[in-house]
Amino acid sequence: MSEEILYRLRGIKRVVTDGRLVLDIEDLEIPEGSLTAVVGPNGSGKTTLLTILAFLVRPEEGEIVFRGKRVEAGDEVALRRIVTMVHQAPLLFHGSVFKNVAYGLRIRRVPRSQWEGRVREALALVDLEGFERRSVKGLSGGETQRVALARSLVFRPEVVLLDEATAGVDAARVEMVETLIQDVSAKLGASIILSTHNLAQAYRLTDRVIHMSAGRVVRGGMDNLFSGHGEHENGWNFIRLRSGPRIAVPGCPPGAIRFMIPSASIDIAAAPGGGEGINRYEGTVTRMEIRGRMVRLRVAGELGLRAEMAPEEVEKRGIRLGGRVVAVVPPEAVQILDS
């Protein structure tokens, strides 16, 4: 069954006033109901991408398709009723926490009788029960961030975009916000797209990670995330997966480890034969689909993998749907996320 596509972006270009191209996305799809992270360094275009996905900014060029319908000028206001964005360093309006959180209900003309219950519920989600009457003036950075989150969740949006949601939150509350993000996805069924600098957080929280650099998507959410245990044997470092197979890596700490294998780093060739290497796994191609200029492959076997290859390579290597293949993972491609 193919997954429903929430956003489809084609040829998106965003140019700022000084003429600089800050976003250049050739092709990007984000599935419905997913938890997606956008990672990249400062200035890589994460926030710009989020503001475009939030329909706050219109790109100079390109096409956005939202739930199968091309977004035209003038559609944005209606779409912003179901898509919301929590900005980095969010701003709270003057007045009380209640007034802020109830704002989304007020502008949607939700009956006033429902406000109190809904606001209380939203504040409880972010662990701020009893804050309704507090003025926003005395709130800490973390509390401000959480009130902003409650303000965006109170009207039960279908898509939530979070720009560095844990940036101002103290370390003790980060886990709470991360749990909340996962709860919102699971309980409200909302699709969540978050930007973060923290690669470990991105992989910890989300199903897909979009890597950005200089306004471009450099990897589009097809990486492989695993967890296992670090081992040392005959001078080699391995990570053993719970399911059995192990992967040689240049170095790893002992104990539980989460790690990632970028889909583009996996070398795949038709079996018998195929590439050579210490991390060599056999499997069957269960899925092949063309996405932009690349072919995405899913390989089922002792180590289930997702890989990305150029179409001419797929043809040259004799890879076909249902065919047996050998996947080789270079040890240096394995990225340890946390331990």
Binding site: V77, R80, T84, P90, F93
Partner: peptide, 14 residues
């Protein structure tokens, strides 16, 4: 603050 308008729009304001 410019963020007032952006925030209101992010929350669905016309």
């Amino acid at each position: 603050d410019e963020r007032v308008r952006k925030t209101a729009e992010s929350l669905g304001a016309t």
